[in-house]
Write a protein that binds this DNA or RNA. Structure first.
Length: 581
RNA sequence: GGCCCCAUCGUCUAGGCCGGUCCAGGACACCGGGUUUUCAACCCGGCGACAGGGGUUCGAAUCCCCUUGGGGCUACCA
């Protein structure tokens, strides 16, 4: 691991209202490892929704590092933005992490010495440090409204300059605060950024330097009294003894500010940072949960058919006409359930972004974790498909890639196929049952023994959804089979398919007991007798009992369906298509 | 616009720090063939990349600079 964690260089003699901030000094911090041998990492999501792929990747890398080094992994909920928090989000994130197999040593539901793990419950702690900063003149009050700030920003933009908050020549006093409050002005607190150059030594990017003059004084306490991310994160990382912070590149620009804060608070050595590359989606930018509503919006706009009723769709989503209008204009985004209901109504599938989306599509966590781990990281040799323990053993934080990577669903499918083959049967059974439950499949009715058999006869399946689709016919009523038109045309109505089906029926009816072997012998004999390939006799049978040309091996399919039901389905098919051409 | 990051097959990547062993390796995808009761799986083969331009050097995918392209951030969000 790299030695110097970071270097803060401040040039010149700078005074902040009489208080010397830093005098032309170069502070070198020794290796984090030297002072704290045990690695402590964390995943700190904000509870605004489901865990998405990007978050899962961040959590995974932090978890992997902790596991690899025998360290500790903490889950901390950054719920300081009351407006954005959604009530069930924390539970959703917890469920998603558990599904992936990512467990935490400290955090919600398991607790630990650093409790509470919800930032909204740590107000006193932040208050203590903010007082310290205020007293030292390293933080100061501000009273501008959002509108005023917006105006200043607009002016800067008009001049093609970046907006930097101008620190007042004389800092507001407590008296000014009282006055502002009396006048109903919002009160926020900004960090007084010291002047100079901050160099961060990133585990994946190397040295990156920033001029603090271009960063400006950022807000650390909001007008509602809650800390902003940049402040709370620094306090908690310090208090919780975090040694390594692995996060997305989108946080790179926050790092100098956080390090300066770390320094100002006298926290000593900051953690080692590793800014991962970003995961890009097929459509271009950062993989984002916005893609689902965007896809839906596009689909709605693409509907030009006359019988399509927009109001009806709005009703499905529980939206008013105005809300629908806003959504289409891109001004608002409905809830997840509303989005999903509308997508279902339109019969379109939304891109999988959240971890649950993949669960519902039939992917297994082992494959997800393996695939996500290889997005921006590699072993260095040619190993790719690996079980979890091997992944942990192979993990090396210094091998993270610098460049962004595209989330390729095709490759995920390939990984899922491999893991489906590798996984012990009991584990697969558990995954399959969970899957059947979440998609509310009729197959869920089957007992474990049957389920295990279904898994076995679907060997080579790519997803759990494949297994479900292939075997659902067993749990459908005999007269409710949905026939695939193409399959009927090609298999039953052509080449005497129906005639062959009748022959098969008679042979089957004559069999005392159905075994896979018996069925196979019978079908093969029939094919030979008529000098045709097995396909010619098997396919009509397959279509008759499943309605489609896709099914598990025919011998198993028939055996599992049973003689009575098979005959009934053959009769139904013969009757149904006898007069069709 | 400003600041920051990145750049090898369509995609994920190995190699780059320690320049020659790389006319660039693997995987997915794709194409062709095989196996076959369907789909999937499986087997064999093929296509396919060092963004461009300048340097440095006997020699550059590897080091330096520029251009171009992509991405991130630019909130009283995290």
């Amino acid at each position: 691991m790299t030695s110097a964690a970071f270097t803060l260089i401040l040039t010149g003699l700078k005074y902040l209202f009489g208080v010397p901030v830093m005098v032309d000094s170069t502070l070198r911090h020794s290796s984090v490892q030297a002072s704290s041998p045990r690695v402590v990492t964390r995943f700190a999501p904000s509870p605004t929704g489901y865990l998405h792929i990007g978050g899962a990747r961040t959590a995974l890398f932090n978890w992997l590092l902790a596991k690899k080094t025998g360290g500790k992994f903490i889950l901390r909920i950054e719920d300081t933005d009351l407006k954005r928090n959604t009530p069930t989000a924390t539970q959703q994130v917890i469920d998603d992490l558990r599904w992936l197999g990512i467990t935490w040593d400290e955090g919600p539901e398991v607790d630990g010495p650093n409790a509470p793990y919800f930032q909204s419950q740590r107000r006193e702690t932040y208050d203590k440090y903010i007082r310290q900063l205020l007293e030292q003149g390293r933080a100061y009050y501000c009273f501008e409204s959002t509108e005023e700030l917006g105006q200043l920003r607009g002016q800067a933009e008009a001049q093609k300059k970046g907006f930097i908050y101008q620190r007042p020549a004389v800092l507001p006093t407590e008296k000014d605060v009282e006055k502002a409050k009396a006048e109903g002005k919002p009160v926020t607190i900004r960090f007084a950024m010291p002047e100079g150059t901050i160099i961060i030594n990133d585990l994946v990017r190397g040295e990156v330097s920033f001029n603090t003059a271009e960063l400006g004084d950022f807000i650390i306490i909001k007008s509602d009294g809650f800390p902003t991310y940049n402040f709370a994160c620094v306090i908690d990382d310090h208090l919780m003894g975090i040694t390594h912070v692995i996060r997305g590149q989108e946080h790179l620009m926050n790092t100098p500010g956080q390090q300066a804060l770390w320094q100002a608070l006298g926290f000593g050595n900051p953690p080692q940072y590793a800014h991962m590359s970003v995961t890009i989606s097929e459509s271009g930018g950062k993989l984002s949960k916005r893609e689902r509503p965007q896809t839906l919006r596009k689909a709605i706009k693409a509907r030009t058919d006359t019988d399509f009723n927009l109001n009806e769709l709005a009703g499905v989503g529980g939206l008013s006409a105005d809300e629908m209008k806003d959504f289409l204009k891109g001004e608002s985004v409905p809830d997840v359930p509303a989005i999903e209901a509308m997508a279902k109504y339109l019969g379109i599938s939304l891109p999988e972004i959240n971890v649950v989306d993949f669960f519902k599509s039939g992917y297994i966590p082992e494959a997800m974790v393996n695939f996500i781990a290889l997005l921006g990281w590699s072993t260095g040799d040619t190993r790719e498909v690996m079980p979890l323990d091997e992944l942990i053993a192979a993990f090396d934080i210094t091998r993270l890639t610098k460049s962004n990577s595209l989330f390729d669903r095709g490759k995920l499918v390939a990984y899922n196929t491999e893991h489906l083959k590798m996984l012990p049967k009991e584990k697969l059974l558990a995954h399959f049952k969970a899957y059947l439950k979440i998609v509310d499949s009729p197959v869920a009715k089957a007992d474990d023994e049957t389920l295990l058999r279904l898994i076995k006869i679907c060997e080579g399946a790519r997803t759990l959804a494949d297994i479900e689709h292939k075997t659902k016919f067993l749990f459908t009523a005999d007269d409710r089979i949905e026939f695939d038109e193409k399959a009927v045309q090609k298999v039953l109505l052509k080449d005497n398919g129906l005639a062959m089906l009748k022959l098969v029926r008679d042979k089957l009816a004559a069999m005392a007991e159905l075994t896979e072997q018996g069925i196979e012998d019978m079908l093969r004999a029939l094919a030979e007798e008529h000098k045709v390939g097995l396909g010619k006799v098997a396919q009509p049978l397959r279509v008759a009992i499943t309605g489609s040309t896709i099914s598990p091996p025919i011998f198993d399919s028939v055996q599992m369906l049973g003689k009575e039901r098979t005959l009934k389905r053959i009769d139904n098919a013969v009757q149904k298509f006898a007069d069709t051409k």
